[in-house]
Amino acid sequence: MEFALSEDQRMLQDSLKGVLAGAASLDQVRKIAVGDSDAIRMLEAALDDFGLASLLVPEAAGGLGLGLLDACLVQESLGYHVAPSRFLASALAAVALAGHPGLLGGEAKFGLAATELVSRRDGAGLALKAGKLTGTSLLAISAAGATHLLAADTKGGVHVVDAGAAQIAPMQTIDRTRMFHHVTLDGAKVLASAKADDRFLAIARLLVAADTLGAAQAMIDKAVAYAAERQQFGRVIGSFQAVKHMCAEMAAKLEPGRALIWHAAHALDIGDAEGPVMANLAKAYMAEAGTFIARTATEVHGGMGFTDLVGLHYWFKRIGVNRQLFGSPEQARETAAQLQGLVA
């Protein structure tokens, strides 16, 4: 028995963090957040070189053929550096389109229009009719610059369409580093279809949980470092129990979440029936832990945490957005209950 990351997995994460420390430094993130195209391109190029787009694509289809635990480690690193990336959309495309490997190789860049799988607003939703998709989808992920869109219909299916067939308009969220779009399709031809089953939604939620894990870990690291420097009443504030206990509570909440994400990813990788339950629970757990840590780490920084100067708010907002993506913690918990037959 071994419940730990492998040497390869640690190296994957270390080398990605090395890349992100440069291309997604806080200075770069600030530029990305105001739409600086050089900064955006530089990060994209660095992540493309790393091979993120093909991480989950099978080796036979020209990908790296890695597993969901590896994907979680990548997403965690992206969250740690509040780095925008197409990775989430690519990974979910690779999961959904396992039966269509031809679409995954090469230069395909996927965006994801799947909000309506979980929550469909009045007037939103994509209808499938005679092999064509028509309608709108809100808060699509990585739609700008995509070659293909993976788009959910209103009946639990997902379909690939040419991104050129989509009209997209930005939807501004609290998180200015990541772009979300309003997508309109008008009879877009479906190139391939798959079912958005329990496993697909579970993986989407698990990856978002991993992103929050990284972002929350970064906030704890920053809070602990700040508490070791900031002096008041003639002492570093980290020596006050009031501050120490806030930090201990953050660590005590976060660390089991990490183990739960590993366990869920591994269970999904080996096809364990409990995998989807664990993944949904992980999403809910990290949403709650992340919210607590985002608030508490900000408070450890005192007034500075509230300013733009230290930039802590990028992480606060990343966690805030993640909490709602692919469903609130309440929705994820209800899914977990349904999967266990606890809902009549």
């Binding site: 419940f3 089991p256 979440g257 183990a259 739960l260 664990m278 629970l281 977990a336 209950a337």
Partner: peptide, 19 residues
């Protein structure tokens, strides 16, 4: 039921932590 699932998430997380 929501409270039960919230606890289940923590129970599973502590079990994984134990592993």
């Amino acid at each position: 039921r929501d409270r039960l699932m919230r606890l289940q998430a923590e129970v599973y997380a502590m079990q994984a932590n134990g592993l």
